[in-house]
Amino acid sequence: MTASMTAGLAQEVAAAVDQLRQITVQVRTHRAATGAGILWNGGEPEGPGLVITNAHVVEGERATVELSDGTAARARLVARDLRRDLAALEFEPGRAVVGAVVRDSPPLRVGELVIALGHPGGLTGAATLGIIHRAESDREGRTPRWIRADVRLAPGFSGGPLADATGRLVGVNTMMQGGLALAIPAVAVEAWVRRSQTMAVS
């Protein structure tokens, strides 16, 4: 790789991280930062804002979400699934917000680059780069329970995005296990959000 390519690569990583910051929020409950969250608007910039995070990040029914530009809003819990470790929060953004774009296909390949964003130890918008550790699915056509990535996460990354090299969301960072990052597949989250909204309406 030539020097200019390496320089280009560094710039592109920085640009990709900047873009991902737009969809990453900080979640606070009882005034303490508890983790990260992902703006999830399903392509509708108007209307109430939806944030997806881990259930273990939101203890009660209320939380504060802080957007990348520093504006904070009160949010209320609209869905929680302890088994999947997912929670959905609703808030009034007061402006148009850009939501995450989910990668539905193609399936993830081992060795592919991934970027994780979070707010570890009071840092806001920290980023880390890694690769996919293991192929997604053991059985064909089934969404796996976890995406496993060789990327170093710290507490505070929980609920934040794991994205591919094009900036599309592939997972919700949830925990570390044996040195590996485990993320809930974005397509599974998408299905869960759809089901949760149907339940809320009916």
């Binding site: 390519m5 280009g8 690569l9 592109e12 990583v13 640009a15 990709a16 390949r109 081992v110 060795g111 592919e112 680059l113 690769i131 996919i132 591919d164 090299a165 094009t166 900036g167």
Partner: peptide
Amino acid sequence: MSTVLQSLSTELAD
């Protein structure tokens, strides 16, 4: 857009 980053990702997976 981010061509170098994407091609690095593809090359690593390849």
